[in-house]
Design a protein around this nucleic acid. Sequence first.
DNA 1: TTCCTTTCTTATATGGTTAAGGTGAGAAAA
DNA 2: TTTTCTCACCTTAACCATATAAGAAAGGAA
Lengths: 347, 347
Amino acid sequence: MVSIKDVAKKAGVSVGVVSKAFNNYPDVGKETRKRIMDIAQELDYSPNRIARNLSSKKNSAISLISSGFEENDQKDNNSFELFKGIYFGSQQLNLDFSIYFTDSFKQQEQSYVQFCRERNIGGAILQGIKLDDPFFKEMVDTNVPCVLIDVVMDEPQSCVGSVTIQNRKATEDLTAYLIERGHRDIAIMAGTKEAYVNEERLKGVQDALLKHGLTFEDKMLFYADFDDQQAYEKAKTYLKTHRPTAFVCLSDLMAYGVMKAAQELGLSVPEDVSVVGFDNSMIAGMTTPTITTIAQDFFEMGRQSALLLNRIVNGESKENEIYLNYELLERESVQDFTNSDRKEHES
Amino acid sequence: MVSIKDVAKKAGVSVGVVSKAFNNYPDVGKETRKRIMDIAQELDYSPNRIARNLSSKKNSAISLISSGFEENDQKDNNSFELFKGIYFGSQQLNLDFSIYFTDSFKQQEQSYVQFCRERNIGGAILQGIKLDDPFFKEMVDTNVPCVLIDVVMDEPQSCVGSVTIQNRKATEDLTAYLIERGHRDIAIMAGTKEAYVNEERLKGVQDALLKHGLTFEDKMLFYADFDDQQAYEKAKTYLKTHRPTAFVCLSDLMAYGVMKAAQELGLSVPEDVSVVGFDNSMIAGMTTPTITTIAQDFFEMGRQSALLLNRIVNGESKENEIYLNYELLERESVQDFTNSDRKEHES
DNA sequence: TTCCTTTCTTATATGGTTAAGGTGAGAAAA
DNA sequence: TTTTCTCACCTTAACCATATAAGAAAGGAA
């Protein structure tokens, strides 16, 4: 492997000069600099970032620590969009981007600080951590800068940022959308209890129900781990004995599961039962019928988190919490019981 | 940041002993070792892998270099399964796993060796490289061990491995499956010309056509870049003036696009036109109708590639090319014109 | 002669590994 | 009993690929 030494030797200078040449130090002769650069090109040399980071104690990388990605909620391509966004943001900042994986179990064996130090991670974007994960608890005590995707801390921390949407408000809108269209008997298909977004989204549904004078009943709430199969099974069981007019699903994948259950029982969506999802995953536009959902921009979420992390690391961040916009995407999976009234109203 | 020095100081020994303790050297006293480990635990210390790799000149990581992942063919979750598999394999080997991204453009700016040296990559799994990518050309000359996903070299290289399925044979089976069911007028929706799998899969379709005495005509071949939208558009245009009985699509996503085009034109799938896909992406089981396709195990592909890379790096590899099994998954998107005959035959 | 620039070298640092050398205690040999 | 050997255990120093502060040499200007 060609190293800085080889370049130095060939250029007839010490390694220090080569290093300086690459770091734009002023005390390198113009001709020497050119010679060094030419030789570097010739030898196909470029400085080793790893050694560079080690030596300079700076860090020129955006790291994503993705937790629990082997679980079901990753069946969609949302994470991929997020990756892309972070990649794009890193490019903008001229930083390297790498992804590391962990899971709830591994987190018990190795602490967050250890994980970061082993890999020279000066700051990280964290995705997929649950509220009861060790990393989440440790984060506050350590001062490794980080940005949380879709999790917001109770108390703001100087070195912890968040990028998310107003999940609570979004499901409130979504539920209100159903209520405004005449739905009164609404079942809820929730995800994983330990997920922050699940908590928030659930609160939002309750907010809407209460605001419209409806009651929230536990027997209409199901947890399906953000998994289509589980949602399918729970919905099927429930639909055999009950007939809600709508299902609020806290992810599109679960919405798909619910629709499948309904359709297999001979129910039409949305005529017999309406279904709404969340995320605007790719599948939401591919099912029959297509799913009305909350669209969030995962790419932008990734990009923003890269930029925010960079600001936090450099101590430039003013606002550590970024809320992105979302949009209620009307598609085909909701029945409007007030259809005629509305049409009259519109005309 | 706590380093080996802090542990050494607190334990009252030199850094060398601490290092040796962590690397299971025999010349460390039993009591000293215990003391060091206790202190390490207390200080939340674990060795920095980066510095370790730098110093020992070994490498304890499996790296995935993913190219062109911002393009359309990543809309599905196949890559995710692959990631999971590599992660799993790395865990088995007790190695770290990280992903790096690049694209065709970036590859022109920085050579493969440079990319690897900058990141201390001793060996990499390469995904998504095209036949005309710079990295692909450079790989042969350099001796950085690597494993290619879904690409096989013309001439075997000692430090280049491959993990894939028999793509050519698979599409031959798939096409034969259609022909056996009475299809004669078969259109082909291909992906990206520069992709190795596209080449192979296309050859397989031709193989089947020729073997069954059918001719391969260019006007029935379309390239849609593995993208559903492009496939949709090209299929729609074609279907307005032609009526093939079947479409062989070289990916499920494109199959979805073709089905959508057909359905919008009032054609039923599979009654009016049959469609087959490739990959068994998640969506293939979610569409209406579900898509008959070639199922491949991306998780296993990832796992195997991690194991193979490890063998190549350690010089233990006997066979550098691994072909995984695939399966023709019969679902709902194909019409059997010989249905009645077959039924009689079966009974 | 002194001082200042410019341009280089040297030395030390990063966080570790590892070969080679040193120390002291107990055992074997003289 | 003294000397030598052995062995367990530790330290030292060089190394990985780089950064950077501090020092030094050469040349020109004041």
